[in-house]
């Protein structure tokens, strides 16, 4: 039994209930308001300063970059993309874009690949030289950032083989590889570990035929650890850098890493 004095000091049950309700609901609406405010801040936050990346809101870009750092820890060259039998490869391979390879009097015969080893030291290669290197084939599920995917069959020289054949050991100590079309209109940047993934291929064949123009003849990138947006068609130039090379879609709000 409670002592009488104590009973007087303490509020009644109804008061306690009312007080508690008041506090909870005030907290609820205050936090709800704060949440809404936070959302409005995020939704209306200003766009990032255009640079290597552009087109995303500042906080979202920061989040993308941080998320990249986290998931890069999980990347391994031992994680291979699933491969399929050749019979499952699509006959009609989807063409999603022509950026950088629009008709403009491009002559595949006079094409040469420029590998910029350092400023002023450029290695120029013909498609015959590249075709003489060991050939790697892959049948895998090509994945587009839009959400579609297709099993496709590609062949060419793996980037690892390419690098060791042309003694680019110094260059691959750097952190990034840049690639762009001959006219410079489409360009991508890759982190070195993704570029050196064993399934990354400089491809010159599709379905056992030389590449068609719309698929990136004479030489294109096939990189299964990235979305399609990084699979540059018609490579004109390869560069190496410790800074992120410019990247077409990263300038348009997409994640720079875009890794799978």
């Amino acid at each position: 039994m409670p002592i009488k004095k104590k009973e007087k000091k303490l509020p009644t049950v109804e008061q306690r209930i009312k007080r508690r309700n008041f506090l909870s609901f005030t907290t609820f609406f205050l936090l709800g308001g704060a949440g809404l405010g936070g959302w409005k801040w995020l939704y209306h936050s200003s766009a990032e300063t255009p640079g290597i990346t552009a087109g995303a809101a500042k906080p979202l870009r920061r989040a993308l970059n941080r998320t990249e750092l986290f998931f890069r820890n999980l990347f391994s060259n031992n994680h291979l993309v699933k491969t399929y039998p050749k019979s499952m490869a699509a006959r009609k391979v989807r063409v999603n874009a022509h950026i950088g390879i629009e008709a403009e009097g491009f002559k595949p015969e006079s094409w040469q690949l420029a590998v910029v080893k350092s400023a002023g030291d450029i290695l120029n290669l013909t498609i015959e030289e590249i075709k003489s290197l060991p050939k790697t084939e892959i049948v895998y599920d090509f994945k587009c950032v839009e959400g579609w995917d297709q099993i496709q069959h590609w062949a060419g020289v793996s980037f690892v083989d390419f690098v060791s054949h042309y003694n680019l050991q110094q260059q691959i100590k750097m952190q990034y590889v840049g690639m762009e079309t001959p006219n410079g209109e489409y360009y991508i940047g890759l982190d070195m570990e993704s570029a050196l993934h064993p399934q990354t291929i400089l491809a010159y064949e599709m379905n056992e035929q030389p590449l068609a123009i719309e698929h990136g003849a004479p030489l294109r990138l096939i990189i299964p650890v990235k979305y399609g947006i990084k699979n540059l068609k018609r490579i004109g130039k390869i560069t190496f850098s410790n800074n992120r090379p410019r990247d077409y879609w990263a300038e348009r709000g997409y994640d720079y890493y875009s890794g799978l």
Binding site: A57, P59, L60, L64, T67, V145, G253
Partner: peptide
């Protein structure tokens, strides 16, 4: 708004 959607999705997934 694909790029925007991905950016939001990959932030709020955390």
């Amino acid at each position: 708004r694909l790029a925007e959607g991905m950016a939001y999705h990959f932030l709020f997934m955390w």
